[in-house]
Every structure is written in structure tokens, then in C-alpha cells.
């Protein structure tokens, strides 16, 4: 799994590439804990993620909590339809605002 941070339309975008599961999730958490800037909305770009395990989805929820605490918006971008399906049936989907890609993000 690789992580890259960039700016898009006033959002801080975290681009994730590779599988998010219990083996890689620690790195993502560490990144969220240390790399996020206060006061700026967060977009998690998952178009390079083919699979997210249960632990991966839980990390999304932690990120959601963290952004609520920071008082900023969170967007999830480019999610694979199979992951979206799993999120829908398990209730995770309801917590997120989903966009197809970074360019479709509203101006922040």
C-alpha cells in the first residue's frame, strides 16, 4: 500500500494505492494521525484500492470520527463498486459522502 498527500480544490487528498487490510492499516492510521492538517476538509482517494478488509473499513470510520472532531468535511472518492457494496450492507456507507473522482469535489 502506498500513501500520497496532495491538494485538490481546497481539500487535502490522501491517495491510497493497494490493498487496505490488517497488514497495511496501521500505516494508514499513522498517516491520518500525523499528516492531517487542522481546518481543511479531507478527501480519501481510493480509486487505486481493489479491496478493503473489515479492518480497512474500520479505519475509514476512524477517519470519519477524526474529521468530525476536527470539524471538517470528509469525502471518499473513487471507491470500487464491490467495496461500496460491502459498505452498504454493513452500514459503513451511510457515514460518508462519496464522489466519483477528485475533480468532482466541490470547491472547499
Amino acid at each position: 500500500m502506498q500513501l500520497k498527500k496532495s491538494l485538490a480544490n481546497g481539500w487535502q487528498a490522501i491517495e491510497v494505492t493497494g490493498q487496505v487490510d490488517s497488514k497495511t492499516v496501521g500505516e494508514l492510521r499513522e498517516f491520518i494521525d500525523t499528516q492531517l492538517e487542522e481546518g481543511m476538509p479531507v478527501a480519501l482517494d481510493l480509486h487505486g484500492v481493489p479491496f478493503m478488509s473489515s479492518a480497512g473499513l474500520r479505519t475509514l470510520l476512524l477517519l470519519h470520527r477524526r474529521t468530525v472532531e476536527m470539524g471538517v468535511d470528509l469525502a471518499v472518492v473513487g471507491i470500487a463498486s464491490e467495496i461500496a457494496d460491502t459498505m452498504k450492507v454493513t452500514g459503513f456507507y451511510d457515514y460518508f459522502t462519496i464522489y466519483p473522482n477528485l475533480t468532482s469535489l466541490p470547491e472547499a
Binding site: 478488509s53 473489515s54 473499513l57 457494496d85 460491502t86 450492507v89 454493513t90 452500514g91 459503513f92
Partner: peptide, 16 residues
């Protein structure tokens, strides 16, 4: 009985 059973997420799906 879980659509997400193949990913071992039946606990969450039933709770949902």
C-alpha cells in the same frame, strides 16, 4: 446469510 460473508463481515451486516 451475509452478502459480506465472504469477507467475514457477517457480524456487521446482521447488526446493521
Amino acid at each position: 446469510y451475509a452478502a459480506s460473508g465472504r469477507y467475514g463481515m457477517q457480524v456487521d451486516e446482521l447488526k446493521q
